[in-house]
Amino acid sequence: MLQVSLYRYNPESDEAPYMQDFSVDTGDRDLMVLDVLELIKADHDGSVTYRRSCREGVCGSDGLNMNGKNGLACITPLSESIKGGKLVIRPLPGLPVIRDLVVDMSLFYAQYEKVQPYLQNPTPAPAIERLQSPEERAQLDGLYECILCACCSTSCPSFWWNPDRFVGPAGLLQAYRFLADSRDTATEDRLAKLDDPFSVFRCHGIQNCVNVCPKGLNPTKAIGHIRTMLLNRAT
């Protein structure tokens, strides 16, 4: 039997959040954490609340804090997560909790929208695709794969302090994804919008984002590139 401790909070009935323990029969299988949540919801308590969709690590719904580390529940096997025989599951830290493991991601999405995450190129498009060499396209690898799960930004102390002013690792990764795209012509405008003390420069290179990214991406490196572009622009 696996001992699971879950963060519970229902705004309608609970004064304060609390931890609830469950004893789950995993049949000694190395299940994913999401499978354990599904077992709890089906067999123990149908009111346990969390988000989930693809269950294969590409939709980004089930970012959670498992035994102290952010990750996606659907691709985190128990063998990688269990500490001291116990699984402690909490919502992603730093965002308001709506209910149980579900957080309000509005601030996170607002920072994403702030970087204008879409290609900008006012020149008339050709009749076919805009050409891009494999080398130019390779510049987008490690950037476009982001799934907006918020594991990175909610593990970042700078984002905890200034979620309204620091764009955060996820948003900045996307900002650089468009700065790095040979087809995008809005570089100057994009940099101007980021050139303040908070948007980019609140990153202190702690690299929590890199440690938790379930897709193996490196926001710190992308932020480094943006810093360089901003500094070059200033001189």
Partner: peptide, 15 residues
């Protein structure tokens, strides 16, 4: 593609 979809590319720069 014009909207920005990051297609993989051929040596000629096409999709």
């Amino acid at each position: 593609e014009h909207m920005g979809l990051p297609f993989s590319r051929t040596e000629e720069g096409r999709i």
